[in-house]
Computed example of a mutant assay.
Amino acid sequence: MKYNDIICQQIHEHISDLYENGLVDKKTMDKFDKSCLAPVKPLTSNEICEIREKEGISQTAFAHRLNVSKNIVAAWERGTRTPKGAALKLLTLVQQKGIDAIA
């Protein structure tokens, strides 16, 4: 997880512990997630292509690692579709730490 700052990280970790022990409800945990975690920024088609090319792998291999179809990766790179949710988080992780981070 990427936090807005160190204070947010510490607060979020404590609240997460309370949530896991049933002392904080889901609604409260969601509020802390939104306020403490850094948002995942959308990626352009060029950025997605650059991420894949930097890793030196084909669209098919990239799709396999992301658990999506090759056609989806091709659509992202053409700009006809936009990654969202888990796919966007995985792409951001690969961008920051490399393909091995999700292997």
Results as ranks from 00 to 15, higher is better:
Leu88Tyr: 07
Leu66Lys: 04
Val40Trp: 01
Gly98Lys: 03
Lys31Leu: 15
Cys36Lys: 00
Lys31His: 15
Ser45Cys: 11
Ala38Arg: 04
Arg78Gln: 10
Ala103Tyr: 03
Leu43Ala: 01
Lys31Asn: 14
Ile99Pro: 01
Arg78Thr: 04
Thr82Ala: 11
Ala63Cys: 10
Gln59Val: 09
Ile6Pro: 09
Leu43Lys: 09
Leu90Cys: 04
Thr60Val: 12
His64Ser: 14
Cys36Arg: 02
Ile6Leu: 14
Asn46Phe: 05
Asn71Ile: 05
Lys2Gln: 12
Thr80Val: 08
Cys8Pro: 02
Thr92Lys: 11
Gly22Ser: 08
Ile51His: 05
Arg52Met: 06
Gly98Asn: 05
Ala103His: 02
Leu91Asp: 06
Thr82His: 12
Gln59Asn: 09
Ala87Gln: 13
Ile15Leu: 03
Ala86Asn: 12
Ile6His: 07
Val40Gly: 00
Ile11Gly: 00
Gln95Pro: 00
Val40Thr: 11
His12Val: 05
Glu77Arg: 04
Phe32Gly: 00
Asp5Thr: 05
His12Ile: 00
Asn71Arg: 13
His14Trp: 09
Ile7Ser: 10
Tyr19Phe: 15
Lys2Met: 07
Ala87Phe: 10
Ile15Pro: 00
Ile51Glu: 07
Asp33Ala: 02
Asp17Lys: 12
Thr44Cys: 05
Lys27Cys: 12
Pro42Arg: 15
Leu66Val: 09
Lys89Asp: 04
Ile6Asn: 14
Gln96Asn: 15
Gly22His: 10
Leu88Arg: 07
Lys27Asp: 14
Ile57Thr: 03
Cys49Met: 14
Pro42Phe: 09
His64Leu: 14
Cys8Lys: 05
Lys70Asp: 09
Lys54Glu: 06
Ala87Thr: 15
Gln96Lys: 12
Glu20Cys: 08
Ala74His: 07
Leu91Thr: 05
Phe62Leu: 02
Leu23Glu: 14
Pro42Gln: 15
Leu37Asn: 00
Lys2Phe: 05
Val40Asn: 02
Trp76Tyr: 15
Leu66Ser: 05
Asp100Gln: 09
Lys41Phe: 12
Ile102Asn: 04
Arg78Cys: 06
Leu23Gly: 06
Met29Ile: 00
Asp17Arg: 08
Leu88Met: 06
Lys89Gly: 03
Ile15Asp: 02
Leu37Asp: 01
Asp30Val: 06
Thr92Ala: 11
Cys8Thr: 04
Ala101Ile: 08
Ile48Pro: 03
Glu13Trp: 00
Lys70Tyr: 07
Lys41Asn: 11
His14Ala: 12
Lys97Leu: 09
Ile6Trp: 06
Leu90Arg: 13
Lys89Thr: 09
Asp17Asn: 11
Leu23Val: 07
Val68Ser: 06
Leu91Cys: 01
Val24Asn: 04
Arg81Asn: 12
Lys26Thr: 12
Pro83His: 11
Leu37His: 00
Met29Val: 03
Leu90Asn: 07
Glu47Gly: 05
Gln95Leu: 09
Leu43Thr: 05
Asn46Gly: 08
Ala103Arg: 04
Ala103Ile: 02
Asn21Lys: 14
Val68Pro: 07
Asp5Pro: 02
Ser45Phe: 02
His64Gln: 15
Glu50Asp: 14
Ala86Trp: 06
Trp76Asn: 02
Ile51Leu: 07
His12Gly: 01
Cys8Met: 03
Glu53Trp: 02
Gln10Thr: 08
Ile6Tyr: 09
Ile11Val: 14
His64Ala: 14
Lys2Thr: 10
Val68Leu: 12
Val68Asn: 04
Ile102Phe: 07
Leu66Ile: 08
Trp76Met: 03
Ser58Asn: 13
